[in-house]
Amino acid sequence: MSVVTAPDTLGTADAGGTGGGVTANRGRPDRGPRARGAASRRFLVRGGLRLFTVVYLAMLVAVPVGAIAYKAFAPGFSEAWRDLTNPEGLGTHDFVHALVLTLVVAAIAVPLNTVFGVGAAILLARHRFPGSRLLDAVIDLPIAISPVVVGFSLLLVYDNTGWIGSWLAARGIHIAFSIPGIVLASAFISIPYVAREVLPVLQEIGTEQEQAAATLGAGPLQTLMRITLPSIRWGVAYGVTLTTARVLGEFGAVSVISGNIQGQTETLTLYVSNQFGNYNLVGAYMGGLVLAVIALMVLGLLSLSKRKESRSWRSKSAESPSGSETLSP
């Protein structure tokens, strides 16, 4: 299938490269051989850069992801549809369960990390306290540690024989090999994203707007709700998107802590892996496709709301010409 996709993509890249060269030259008078040499050098650099970017993304991302879609629908669309609705195929109890479980886990872990991330970012950006640098470092830890290790470390603590797990197990609460464990692992590995997106935004907007709100009579909560949160909304939105994508796609940590029990603690990524292991390739491709579609939907939602806001902003700015600066008494 790559025979179909790849040359097509490369063709576009080539056209784009040429286009870039033309744009660079447009509207400029010819300044002799020297200028022409600079222009052609610019063309080469720009064209080369574009070609590299497109080929790199194609080989790493577009082609493999496209291949999943292609393979999933390889038997034909009607076949795939039958598979999707057939209780024997994708419509099996296991697949639906995995899908629901994945969504439930995301629905708990993402809001948790959103609240934590926003709180931690505000704490780090606005307050100086002992241990703030430690907090700053610990937030990044989940990126540094391999997810499998995260899974094992959680197992160590929350297993029925673990430090906290044994105490909880005595009270009838089981974390490991059940849904709370999966939520815990998903939350762990996706901790940094909201905080890391929001922190620079907070630092960039500074404290003046918050101080202005304070002089105008707003209390701390009013300032948070009316000034700070609206100011960081895009940072939060990006962070939530990344967190969601990360939680949906998590495999290693979840695989260890969940015990990977089919139809019980099997998330969608585990389902894909298990189907692949069982030589049910169509099932694996379909599962993978569903995962990709959900992730794309989240990304689409973000860019949609972003476009909507910028459009409403633009229409507001278009309606009035630049105002006069003159002040008559």
């Binding site: 707007q209 101080q211 202005a212 709100a213 002089t215 105008l216 009579g217 209390g219 100011s231």
Partner: peptide, 30 residues
């Protein structure tokens, strides 16, 4: 907020996500 002051910042500190009307109305709203 309890001092009965109005303060204008050097760079005006406008609430960027609010219109002119909402900016001016802020103090009364809160």
């Amino acid at each position: 907020r309890d001092r009965g002051i109005g303060f204008c910042f050097q760079h005006y500190a406008p609430f960027r996500h609010m219109t002119v009307f909402e900016n001016v109305a802020f103090g009364l709203k809160v």
